[in-house]
Nucleic acid binder design. Structure first.
Lengths: 347, 347
DNA sequence: ACGGCCTACTGTACCGGTACAGAGACCCGA
DNA sequence: TCGGGTCTCTGTACCGGTACAGTAGGCCGT
């Protein structure tokens, strides 16, 4: 069941049938109607996408590469809102989104073996094997929440400025014993020596730097802890690391809202009142931040806008590659904003 | 830069280079090493996925079709956990997941134009155009949360039994004025006449039937309302429809946890105490249900297991299609369980 | 010395489309 | 009457791989 089948049935050339489906203005309306009718009758849906992809050099799909486990990435409302926004923005351009894992999945490596027109690289280890394949395939790429690279379009959020604003807010409230709570699947968990902070992830590093930007000038030497993931269990564990110390901090700056929820919960369990005895600041301003108790002071980033920008940049890069133009490798940095709610107070 | 380029460079046939990448046991290790070295040197990553897809008749990707807007589907933790689970389960089989929108997106219709080996159909309108294309392409399909169809593998949850258990619980607590709060993007919003209930969506219908299974024998005639979506705003609006009536119900059974959160919030705003004056039951038992205040009584469904089952069924269907075997069209129904927490009490 | 069986590699015919140049037919103005 | 332009339709040459049926040589047993 191919174009030829239809062509034989109608008595035209295969090329004309192809045009009937793909270039309606290349043949008369009457003949086109006859062809489509014959195709319908024979149960022919349309040109085979795989064959078309080979001939035209373009599949209608782009990938999105995530380093973290997919299961995990999909339990975070901030990340999923971002994906949703991307997918929605991509739809009108006719591009579909394919999820790429970088986990070692036996002989098949999606980043190498799946046909696509381009890819979004989201919060990935820059040395990962999967990213290496994407780069070597010379696919149009857009980096998101990723260390900017010359010549590659990047979309980032001003994590550092947001984190600094959060820390300045805490300092202005008079806090001197400040805890920083990072998260990340890889690397050491537990208390971290201040002069030996290694963080994986561009966003983590930027946020840490932003905090220190404000704390150091104020002469505040923070206590730094690091937990193993973003689930509530881990966050509570990380929070206890800080809250059960004799020199318990009066304020905790968290890598994300998800981490902050763990701190709120741990504080509740330990009978520490927020914001009376402990101030907590999140990051992201996800949909739950305003609903938390107390309502969470946090740094807002617009993930929907980030998705929109990433999708637009990728669509542009793919379109440019199709026409052979060079890609405009713009580096976009979206603003962040401190949202003061009820989880922070003066000492 | 094709197989031929490498073949010429090494002085072997194109076929041998192909085998070096795809069938290592077809040539000597020494020659294979030489070929791979030459490929590496020339910057050849591997066989072109699009060409391979055409030749082998299999792309490494499967689709997932959603009727609702992607942006919306991605703001619901229950749905996203399900996607995450699917993706994770699919990874070891070497299949990637492509998101398919059924929204009319101009000339390109992903369900028709994207190359894939099979697809998951999740909670879709059975008459949708996109689904029609998938069916006519004769792709291996698996239906999830969808009206079961003979000859197609289906994965469902026992929504009806779960809803019945929820309603029985409410009846056992002595409630006689019971509200039902449905949701759904299409169709009428507002109060619905009991003998004129039309619901879109298989899950909605099953849950409604389950509630009525328990309420009717008890002689309880429910008040039925319907809201326009699952966001908190809509849910609050729907809740007020029920709670501001003179004959305000003493219990509300909700289509989902997301809807129940809206009821909890609206109750708070109206000064109605839960569970003192109002009992609320959710559905899904998402990650937030136990954290809600008061902790939500709800019907648990295991979305991770649902994802696992769906992925397994699809992988099996794709594998069967490859070997030409007939697909075993098993209809799986996963159990549900009523989880009684703090949001329900006796009248 | 010879048939038979591995192992390692090769040649050809596809997979199902699209690009592009070209060939008639037809209409128009000069 | 004829040159040139437009509108339709056609023929051929790809796109970059894989399947499968060879073929050549080496090794074995007899």
């Amino acid at each position: 069941m191919t174009l030829q089948t239809i062509a034989d049935r109608v008595g035209v050339s295969r090329m004309t049938v192809s045009n009937a489906f793909s270039k309606p203005d290349q043949l008369s309306a009457a003949l086109r109607a006859r062809i489509l009718a014959a195709a319908d009758e024979l149960g022919y849906v349309g040109p085979d996408p795989a064959a078309r992809a080979l001939a035209t050099g373009s599949t209608g799909a782009v990938g999105v590469l995530l380093t973290t486990s997919l299961r995990y990435a999909f339990t975070d409302l901030v990340a999923t809102s971002f994906f949703g926004s991307i997918a929605e923005q991509l739809a009108p351009t006719g591009l579909s989104l394919t999820l790429l894992t970088s986990s070692d999945s036996g002989p098949i490596i999606p980043a190498r073996d799946v046909a696509m027109d381009g890819a979004l690289v989201f919060s990935c280890d820059p040395t990962s094997e999967a990213l290496g394949y994407l780069v070597r395939r010379r696919l149009p790429l857009v980096y998101v929440d990723q260390s900017p690279v010359e010549g590659v379009p990047c979309v980032n959020v001003d994590d550092r400025a947001g984190a600094r604003a959060a820390a300045e807010h805490i300092v202005a409230l008079g806090h001197r014993r400040v805890g920083l709570l990072m998260s990340g699947a890889h690397g050491p968990h537990g208390m971290i020596d201040t002069d030996d902070i290694k963080v994986d992830g561009y966003a983590s590093r930027q946020r840490l730097l932003g905090w220190l930007d404000a704390l150091e000038p104020a002469g505040v030497e923070p206590l730094v802890a690091r937990q193993g993931g973003d689930d509530l269990e881990q966050a509570r564990w990380g929070a206890r690391l800080l809250l059960e110390r004799p020199d318990r901090p009066t304020a905790v700056l968290c890598f994300s809202d998800a981490v902050a929820y763990g701190v709120l919960q741990a504080a509740g369990e330990l009978g520490i009142s927020v914001p009376g005895e402990l101030s907590v600041v999140g990051f992201d301003d996800g949909p739950l931040a305003a609903q938390a108790w107390p309502a969470l002071t946090t740094v807002r980033q617009d993930v929907v806008e980030k998705g929109r920008a990433a999708a637009a940049a990728l669509a542009a890069a793919v379109a440019a590659a199709r026409t052979g133009e060079p890609v405009a490798a713009t580096h976009l940095v979206l603003p962040t904003e401190l949202i003061v709610r009820k989880s922070t107070a003066a000492v």
